[in-house]
Design a protein around this nucleic acid. Structure first.
Lengths: 337, 337
DNA sequence: GGAGATGCTGTAAACGCTTTCATAAACGCT
DNA sequence: AGCGTTTATGAAAGCGTTTACAGCATCTCC
């Protein structure tokens, strides 16, 4: 039987209203009473009941984190960053992992309806559909609480995007390959989501900027499961057998680039001499390969910090920028010339 | 202004008690009223207020997940598994990441005191200290809610351990190295926690079983930060310069084994011909190396499933085994003969 | 036909806070 | 001294549930 606010009020010789005011840092308490009440509170280690507080305030200082795939080290890193930072601001995080995009939507809505989270972070732009009518769930949720998009952008009130300029970064990565003499650059991607489309656009931009013609047969899609390393390797081997020529690979995720390295090993090609490879995310996978992977650092920790700052700002009623764009940076390692 | 239980009771022509009974599947409701009330509830999409419910029941169906390092792919995978499974049972998960062990304890207690979680999962045995008096926080927390240990064991009421027999698995892994002719086996480990100690014991068991003398200079400790890949590489290079001889490496985590591969590359040694390497966890890092890493699969997903099942059992008042041990399995890949 | 079960439903009291409103005290001013 | 203003406090009404308890039919069985 933990203590309640009545116990404190009795011991401090004040009313529960005063105790409540002390707890909530209300200015309408004299310095004297504040001290007296605080002394009692600390003396007996009283902690206000969060459920009752939630009932009164209709909030429990909770943020929902919707994560499409927590086992991806990149998103896992984001998860850790976000959680730590929100906690520092006094907010706890409810996690909601999900494989399938459809259920992701449901879970987001559920989190809102059943847990009354104060805000949600959609981690990864896979939440944003190309077909706009499928995005109603975001618009709907945004009516209730602020929605923050990690690596996405969406024009809607109360929705805030914090992202890397993937188009530009992808363009620069591709240009790096082109400018080292490569002409047949494979583009491998995981999913056709918001940032996936941006990266593709950047890839095209780069080709255009160097006067290289786009060849659709150089672009391949892969599912999101764990076996994609082998999938990529086998796919590239198959392409080679079919006579397709390529001298570089650019991927939308590091794990796919790992697959490209596997291919090179299987095909007896030297990286980067015979095949240049650039990944995306600059995740811990990059250091595991030999040679180590050149990759695009898309400023995850800055993005996470900014997401938390924006969420806090919005929750405190401040005006916040609807879209913040960071500039990616290519981290050159051994997989490129 | 969402609907409340009074709105439903009015529309259904019953009292709020009856509505509540319908919502909680109480048997004391006639089939007729149940149907009538359900129809109203579904008709208007009513969802009971979780805060009020929490206040009444002193529970919000929430599990606290204490994760020492969410950016580790292995733990991230566990996080995803646990969350999905708890959600399927109607429980949401509050995440609490932490780098430092001390603050981990604080956060666990805080989660309990401020959030009234119904149970906690301590992910990774780094929560269990070698010095027993430092484990009071577990004992304390266990008085309030069931505590589940992922990869740990702790003799205390209301604390349940689900783990892999790391000692045996480490022994078998080391024996595998010994039986392929290796005699000078480095053991690299991340931290001196519960499972760290077990693995060490297994390593020693294996040496004893084959009559090989233990050499303390073959054991090295590394911190937990991300740079450990390079740390390991440089450390091994230094050992080599000092004249220490070794023909195999066994590590407590895959990421350290990746560092050993880096060392082999830097030192111009062939894996596995000049140097055999075995990691631990069978994480996604294993596939990134060349050759791919032999590693101990410690049955993460089985452990996670069992954690959730045990937690649910305890919460439903059933008797549950205090300790469940899975048997690890060595996954042989290219880094061993 | 009435006593005693049995089954269903409603009333009202928690649960532990926040917050509005009223009141009382203290203060400054003429 | 008297008045209006400001400041500090308390009483009480929510917030939306759960649940103990009471009440009322209906039924069973002598």
């Amino acid at each position: 039987m933990p203590l309640n606010i009545y116990d404190i009020s009795r011991r401090a010789g004040v009313s529960i209203a005063t105790v409540s005011r002390v707890l909530n840092n209300s200015p309408h308490v004299s310095e004297n009473t504040r001290k007296k009440v605080m002394a009692v509170i600390e003396g007996c280690g009283y902690v206000p009941n969060a459920f009752a507080r939630g009932l009164g305030l209709n909030s429990m200082q909770t943020i929902g984190l919707l994560c499409p795939n927590a086992s991806d080290p990149y998103l896992a890193q984001a998860l850790a960053n976000l959680e730590r930072s929100f906690r520092a601001h006094g907010y706890d995080c409810l996690l909601s992992c999900t494989d399938k995009e459809l259920s992701a939507r449901m879970q987001g809505v559920e989190l809102l309806r059943t847990r009354h989270v104060d805000g949600m972070v959609l981690m990864g732009s896979s939440f944003i559909e190309a077909e706009d009518r499928n995005n109603d769930f975001i618009r709907e949720a945004a009516k209730a609480v602020p929605i923050l998009l990690l690596n996405g952008s969406f024009p809607c009130d109360n929705v805030y995007g914090v992202l890397c300029d993937d188009q530009r970064a992808a363009c620069e990565a591709t240009q790096l390959l082109l400018d080292s003499g490569r002409r047949r650059i494979l583009y491998l991607y995981h999913s056709q989501n918001y940032s996936g489309r941006k990266k593709l656009a950047g890839y095209c931009d780069a080709l255009a900027s160097r006067g290289v013609e786009l060849d659709e047969s150089l672009m391949s899609y892969f599912g999101e499961d764990k076996t994609s390393v082998y999938q990529v390797r086998d796919h590239l081997l198959a392409l080679e057998r079919q006579g397709l020529e390529f001298d570089a690979v650019f991927t939308s995720e590091d794990i796919l680039a790992v697959g490209a390295v596997k291919y090179a090993i299987a095909a007896g090609k030297k990286v980067p001499d015979d095949l240049s490879i650039i990944g995306y995310n600059n995740s811990s996978y990059c250091l595991c390969c030999n040679p180590e992977l050149t990759s695009v650092d898309n400023k995850l920790s800055a993005i996470c910090d900014h997401i938390v700052a924006t969420m806090m700002g919005v929750l405190e009623g401040r005006e916040m920028p609807q879209k913040t764009v960071f500039t990616g940076e290519i981290i050159r390692r051994g997989s490129t010339l």
